[in-house]
């Protein structure tokens, strides 16, 4: 590969990482509280609000069932409102965040619901209110599960980020399509795929390692 192509590859990798990092952070920022609320607002739970739970669940499902490429196009007005433009790297983080938030929320919800209800009961018996229980029991106990969920979300975002080339988002996917496919440079296509594989592998390994370190449920020598 020519130095020019290596430069392009590095540039695209940086773009992808930036998009995914921003989307993952914002997605967590919105998705974490949403997931906690979804888990605790069901009937008979700590913050019981079945109606709101139902409505939020519907919105989350709707977003999640929309194919990402359609979502990107469908929310262009919203993207323009937030980012001031609908094309480019930063504009692309808007649909990525919109897709990541409900995904992360559902993963967080699942992790929280895995927490033994006996622990919530114990905390209630010691006089804890709902917010204390969420802070001191649910989040710490669900943390390994939440981390695994975030790992999964980041891996999915790496995949989604390939599609935002459609709105000029740049990044690895865009590079692979433009050079590898449209200009028929198979070595570029290969390089892009290899970099993506390495990234996914790295994210997965780091995420699992952190989750394992936090998980005290199993006995370790």
């Amino acid at each position: 590969m020519s130095p020019e192509m290596i430069r392009l590859l590095l540039q695209a990798t940086g773009d992808t990482l930036a998009m995914v990092a921003v989307a993952a952070c914002l997605g967590t920022l919105f998705g974490l509280p949403l997931g906690i609320f979804l888990a605790t607002s069901r009937r008979g739970e700590l913050l019981a609000a079945p109606w709101l739970n139902g409505i939020l669940g519907l919105v989350v499902n709707a977003t999640r069932s929309t194919p990402f490429i359609i979502l990107v196009v469908a929310i262009i007005p919203f993207t323009r409102l937030i980012a001031g433009t609908s094309i480019g790297l930063w504009a692309a983080t808007v649909p990525l965040t919109v897709a990541a938030t409900p995904f992360i929320a559902r993963l967080v919800e699942a992790a929280i619901r895995e927490v033994d209800s006996g622990l919530v009961e114990a905390a209630r018996a010691f006089g804890a209110g709902p917010l204390t229980i969420i802070r001191k029991v649910l989040i710490p106990e669900a943390l390994p599960g939440i981390l695994l969920g975030l790992t999964l979300a980041v891996v999915s975002l790496l995949g989604y980020s390939a599609m935002v080339g459609a709105v000029g988002g740049g990044g690895l996917g865009d590079l692979g399509i433009r050079y590898g496919y449209q200009r028929f440079r198979p070595e570029m296509m290969l390089a892009v795929v290899v970099v993506l594989i390495v990234l996914v592998q790295a994210v997965q390994t780091i995420g699992e390692r952190f989750a394992a370190r936090l998980n005290r449920r199993v006995r370790r020598a």
Binding site: G118, L119, E121, A122, F126, P140, E141, R217
Partner: peptide
């Protein structure tokens, strides 16, 4: 209060 399954925080 104490419980049959202890209900200790694993974390």
């Amino acid at each position: 209060m104490i419980f049959q399954h202890f209900n200790l925080l694993s974390s």
